[in-house]
């Protein structure tokens, strides 16, 4: 009755109506962003009086947007590489180690996930001021690595736990050393987990803003920091353009992830 769409009766209309309203609520802002980015009026009129690409041209020719985009890419790439590397090492220790307190170690690696970002932001800010590395690239990478590492550890330990340890043992009996066995046999076997770890690490850094506010300097800003600065000043169509591009990128990434999932399910 309740779990059968055809036999919900009057509840079906109620359910469809609420679900429809919720979907509209979730979708409308995204559609609006895209509409505004083509809106010919600089005052964000809706419905738009006309359509234009001028805001896109403006953003693409703005060296500041470009610089922050590049900064975001650079920070994200460094964070991704380090996060996957450290996550992989930790994953091996957590899933293959023989020492006591492995579960405690696993829990410890997840703690940055539950800490409110604002607390981490000002804690690192305070430490970096003291060390005179506030506003530096290294500071950015360190801060985002703290946030990304838990995701990487989760994705990689998950993948390692699904990979039989006997695979590693078999490779070792074949004559491979421990790390040779891991690199040649285990890495290919957990490649989906590694991809997930990289994706989550990059996205964590790419989207992060709260901690980034405290890491940024006027000359070193990631894309979200710059967006926040703009938003605090005024609602220019520039942000609609950047936001639309981000929505597009998200949709593309989701498509990619879905493809990847299909491939890995086979």
């Amino acid at each position: 009755m309740l779990m059968d769409f055809a036999r919900l009766g009057w509840m079906r209309w109620l359910l469809c109506a609420t679900a429809g309203a919720c979907t509209l609520f979730l979708l409308a802002p995204l559609v609006l962003l895209i509409a505004l980015s083509f809106d010919s009026s600089p005052w964000l009129q809706f419905p738009p009086p006309g359509w234009t690409l001028q805001w896109y041209a403006q953003v693409f020719h703005d060296p500041d947007w470009l610089a922050s985009f590049i900064t975001s890419l650079e920070v994200g790439s460094c964070v991704t590489v380090l996060s996957v590397l450290l996550g992989l090492l930790c994953g091996f220790a957590i899933t293959r180690g023989q020492f006591r307190g492995r579960e405690i170690l696993r829990g410890f690696f997840l703690t940055p996930m539950i800490l409110p970002s604002i607390v981490l932001g000002i804690a690192l800010y305070s430490a970096f001021l003291w060390l005179h590395i506030a506003g530096s690239f290294a500071g950015f990478v360190i801060a985002h690595l703290v946030l990304a590492l838990p995701f990487s550890v989760v994705a990689i330990t998950g993948a390692l736990e699904q990979t039989d340890k006997s695979l590693e043992d078999a490779a070792m009996l074949c004559g491979a050393g421990l790390w040779e066995a891991r690199v040649r046999v285990i890495l290919p076997a957990i490649r989906h987990g590694l991809f997930g770890a990289a994706l989550f690490s990059f996205l964590t850094s790419w989207d992060e803003v709260v901690v980034a506010i405290f890491m940024a300097s006027p000359t070193l800003q990631t894309l979200p920091v710059r967006m926040l600065g703009e938003l605090r000043q005024d609602l220019s169509p520039d942000i609609a353009v950047v936001s639309s591009l981000l929505v597009l990128a998200t949709a593309l990434l989701m498509g990619l992830a879905a493809l990847f999932q299909k491939e890995s399910a086979r």
Binding site: T23, L26, L203, L235, S243
Partner: peptide, 22 residues
């Protein structure tokens, strides 16, 4: 479900910007 996930994955500032306009 795709729409739910799309909105969840969209940049936080982009979403907040949309609500500032709305």
């Amino acid at each position: 479900f795709g729409i739910v996930i799309l909105s969840m994955w969209t940049n936080l500032l982009a979403r907040t910007y949309a609500w500032m306009v709305l």
